[in-house]
């Protein structure tokens, strides 16, 4: 379960701020974060991922509370328990697809994690139709292919929480269907929590709940509470 309580966050030198008194997302729940551009969807996703840290409040995933963790522990937690799919895919240009897929496992400094990830690459790559691109560098991939690589990378470590930013924005109809099916199957078999940001209405019907992030958005004034 993901619990956010009394969270206050603002970017330095900007009037953007988020304030969440209480938000709970149950284990295995599939949630969409929606809202207009600039409403703070990506910010909230990054807060849940521990990439950004709130100025106040607490984010708890299972028994783990972020604000009590060191930078190194947070990193370990993110690598082991969270699957992140970014809107910009975040692929390393000098690594080929296979190396990009294995990078999180490599960063875990665990040979076992790397072996397991290696074992899972091919079935997933086949499922999303990029098995012939494993030796290619990101530069030679289409946007859709890059997105599929990012999705596979997030699923390789079999995380219990998937945080996904616009997973179907660059995909054609057929591949979008495939990805939706993949997320459905994954969450069902792994009892994983799915939090995704999307403008794609096709996705919403597969989800349990839709949260409008706009409700958390406030203006920040220095010296005042957001």
């Amino acid at each position: 379960m993901i619990t956010i309580s009394n969270l206050k966050f603002h970017y330095p030198n900007a009037d953007f701020a988020l304030q969440i008194d209480k938000l709970k997302i149950e284990s295995g729940e599939k949630v969409a974060l929606v809202g207009p551009s600039g409403s703070g969807k990506t910010t909230l996703l990054h807060l849940i991922a521990g990439i950004l840290l709130p100025q106040e409040g607490e984010i708890q995933i299972g028994e783990t509370s972020f604000h009590r963790m060191s930078d190194a522990d947070l990193r370990e937690f993110r690598l082991n328990h969270l699957g992140l799919i970014f809107q910009e895919f975040e692929l390393i240009e000098y690594l080929n697809v296979q190396q990009n897929l294995l990078l999180p496992a490599k960063l875990q400094r665990s040979d076992k994690a790397e072996e397991e990830a290696q074992f899972r690459i091919l079935p997933l790559a086949k499922k999303l139709g990029i098995e012939d691109k494993l030796k290619a560098h990101p530069k030679s991939l289409s946007t859709g292919e890059k997105q599929r690589v990012a999705i596979i990378r997030a699923l390789l470590s079999q995380p219990k929480t998937l945080l996904v930013d616009e997973p179907t924005s660059s995909l054609d109809e057929a591949h979008a269907e495939l990805v939706i099916q993949l997320f459905d199957d994954y969450c069902e078999t792994q009892n994983a929590t799915l939090i995704l940001l999307t403008h794609d209405t096709r996705l919403l019907q597969h989800l349990d709940r839709v949260i409008d992030v706009q409700q958390f958005r406030t203006a920040y004034a220095e010296g005042a509470n957001p």
Partner: peptide
């Protein structure tokens, strides 16, 4: 990117 993926 590296930071997002888990690099300190």
């Amino acid at each position: 990117t590296l930071h997002k993926l888990g690099c300190t």
